[in-house]
Structure formats: structure tokens, C-alpha cells
Amino acid sequence: MDILTLCNMASRRLNNWQLNELPAPSTARALLVFVIMVGITPAGAMWFESSMTTHMLVQLPLLIVLGAVCYQPKAQLNSFLTRIDPLGAIAFICYTGWMLFWMLPLNLDLATIEPSVRLLKLISVPIGIGCCFRWLWHQSNAVLKCVVVFETWASVTRLGWLYIESPLQLCSSYLIGEQQRVGTLLLVISGISATVAVFYSLFGSFNKKNDSTLAKSTSNG
């Protein structure tokens, strides 16, 4: 077995990995409510927000992923969204806007201080970023999807590098050493995701017609 076949097999596994392997929306919804409730209670908020790592790399991703997984609009809403946003541009603006908003050190700090901003975070992150991402995914063509993934990756990389380089303490609630640790972790995430993405796009099988070994794979979207 040569290396090419190995690569192909591995990325075929990636390729066949479908959304239905995710937990069901109802489970995700229950989990999301649970995470939000924990995030509101003083002890839970304390735990999530005590360090920058748990705040940025545990709580926010949890909210985003759960928000995305539990997104299951009713047919009515779906057709409404499709009607007002046929190309996905509004979804794109919404998604990037909230991403930018929560990447500002200012808002991360305020979320640890002001209860109203904390609540805004617990609601807007799953909806504005998580659900919006699915909406965007549903609405946009392949090129826009790739642009979104590309830009998201680039932002993670930029943010990680900035956190490492900045001699200033960007978040008043967190020590600079912790900021640098989060920066390093973000760069690790960026490195791993870039490897996976390169691997997938170079070796994945995308022509459903010609490759009979791929008969099993279903189309998504």
C-alpha cells in the first residue's frame, strides 16, 4: 500500500463524515441550555471565567458548537431566511460581525464584569455565531463556504500571533502570561486545522460520479 492510497483512505473517512454523526439537535439543545445555565450561576461563571483559557477555549467554543448543532429551523423560517438572503451575504455579515465582536478584548473583559454583557455573550454566541454559521453554510455556494473557513482560520492565526506578540496586557481581567498561553494554544489549533484542511482538500474525493469506491458517500447541503 503506497502513501497516496493511505492518504486517500484517511480523507475518504473525513469526506464521508456526515452531519448525522453529530448528536441530535434535541440533545444539543438540552446541553446548550445546561451550559448557558451554568454560565449564569455565580459558581459556574466563576469557573468558566476564572482563566482566559477556559473562557476563550472552552466556554466560547462550547457555545458555538452547541449553537451550530442545535440549529434546526422550521420550514417557514427556513424559507423566510432563504428569501431575504439568497446568496448568504447577510448571514456572512452576521457571522463575521459577532465573531469580531467577541474577539475584542474589551467585550471579553466586560463579560466577566457586567452581568448584562455576560448574558449577551451566553445568547449571542450560540445564535450569532453558531446558528449563523449553519445558516450561512446552508445558504452559500461552495466558494463562499471556503472563504468563510479560510477567513475563520486566518483570524484564529492572527489572534494567536497577536496574543503572543503583544507586550500589552490586552484583557484587564487576565494576566499577560495567560494571554500568551492562549495565543500559543490558538496557534496550535490553527496549525492542526491547517494540516487537516490541506490534507482534506488535496486528497479528499470530490467527484461523486467517477469514483465508484465513493458510492457510499452522500451529498450534503
Binding site: 503506497d2 502513501i3 497516496l4 492510497t5 461552495a142 466558494v143 471556503c146 472563504v147 479560510f150 482538500s201 488535496l202 486528497f203 479528499g204 474525493s205 470530490f206 467527484n207 467517477n210 469514483d211
Partner: peptide
């Protein structure tokens, strides 16, 4: 991206577009 997707749709993926399956396979 548009080119990459189009090549992948027709030939399977970019490495097949590059002809690696003929070179190594």
C-alpha cells in the same frame, strides 16, 4: 477556490488534477 472546486469536481481532487495518481499510483 472556484478553480479548485471545479477541478476537484471533475477529477476527484487537486492531487489528481496534478496527476499524482498517474505519477505514483
Amino acid at each position: 477556490l472556484d478553480m479548485a472546486i471545479a477541478i476537484s469536481k471533475k477529477y476527484g481532487n487537486l492531487t489528481r488534477g496534478l496527476g499524482l495518481h498517474m505519477l505514483f499510483g
